[in-house]
Simulated assay, not measured.
Amino acid sequence: MLASIQAQTQQFDIASIMGGLYGDGIIGLKGAFDRSWVQEVAEDIEVLFQEALQRPGGTLNRGPNRYYVETHPERLRGFVDLVSHSWVVAVCEAVLGPEYKIVEIGFDVPGPGAVNQPWHRDFPTPPETLIGRRLSSLAFNVTTVDVYEDMGPFEIAPGTQWDDLSEFEHGMFPPKSLYGRYKERAQQKMPKMGDISARSSLTIHRGTANLSNKFRPVLVLGVEAPDATQAVQHNLQVTRTFYESLPDQVHRHLACRLVDQLEPLVQAHSIEGLLMGDT
């Protein structure tokens, strides 16, 4: 299995991967999965989202009508397919090194009426990036619907993962006086079911207003270098039975806590600056 994955990853050009993530801060692969696979993921997310809405602390508010839910890997039928996909593995190894760690699986759900978020990054720039100029974490996104302009597409300002925001709010939110820089660079992403993107969570971005009557769920996979120092705490847990069923290529990278029975997750990574939207 490991030899097979290694052979598949060699089809991807490391220089292009590194150039994209160190340059624009985002890259993608179109048609990575069949639409039927994405539909299964969408069904699982819908179940998990409804469960989370009923549980205290089950969701994080990321702005009006916008939610984030971190979940358990084994509750998603597509988890193993995603983390063992040859492109995902190639990107992780190229940017984060061969001992990268899978630290988070969850999903964003921007609903009808979601407003523009303020421009932001997901956490303060860690020293290995600010001083050492090295990326130590990545976020992979997989949309579960075809995205159109009225659905509040994700918007990103390429190249801004290197901006120093340490003097501004929480090291994550640029002041409005700098918004012109991000609006000039802004690219809206409208992926289709089956596409994958990988980005540095430090690249300045925002969710835009969802003017449609549709939800736009997107699966999120978080991966880090083994020496990453950013302070976001995750609670990835898997049952021993599930862990033992995983291919070696997967469980050797899984930074998780083994449990006999899954415990309900209380969402911890709140970003206060997003709660009111772009006011």
Rank of each mutant, 00 (worst) to 15 (best):
E263D: 07
P118E: 07
P247I: 04
V88N: 05
I27V: 13
Q237L: 02
E272N: 09
P56R: 00
L258W: 02
A94C: 11
R35D: 08
F33E: 04
S136E: 10
F215L: 08
Y22K: 12
L29T: 00
N141C: 08
R181E: 12
W119S: 05
L275A: 12
A209Y: 03
V232G: 02
L178W: 13
T9Y: 02
N235K: 11
E184L: 14
G57K: 09
L82I: 15
Q188W: 04
V142F: 11
L21S: 10
L138S: 03
P73L: 03
F123E: 05
D81W: 02
Y100F: 15
G207N: 04
Y243W: 14
A15K: 15
T9N: 04
W162N: 09
S36Y: 01
V115E: 08
P175N: 06
P73E: 05
L53N: 07
A157I: 10
T239P: 06
G180V: 08
S177K: 13
S212W: 10
M18D: 03
V218Y: 03
E51I: 08
V38Q: 07
D163E: 15
L211P: 00
G23E: 08
P110I: 00
Q261G: 00
V41N: 01
S270C: 03
Y182A: 06
S86M: 03
I131D: 10
I271C: 06
H251N: 13
I204D: 08
A268G: 09
Y243C: 02
A15P: 00
N116G: 00
A157L: 09
Y100Q: 06
L275P: 03
P191A: 09
R133F: 07
G222M: 13
A198V: 09
L76N: 06
R66F: 12
P191N: 09
F154G: 01
V47S: 11
I102V: 14
T279V: 12
V259T: 05
M18Q: 11
S4Y: 03
G78I: 06
G57S: 13
E167M: 12
D34E: 15
A255W: 04
Q54L: 11
V259K: 01
E272L: 06
F123D: 01
I271S: 03
G63V: 05
V69N: 02
A255V: 00
G25F: 13
K30E: 12
E184K: 15
L265V: 14
T279L: 13
V218A: 15
R199M: 13
V41E: 08
K189M: 12
L21W: 11
G97V: 00
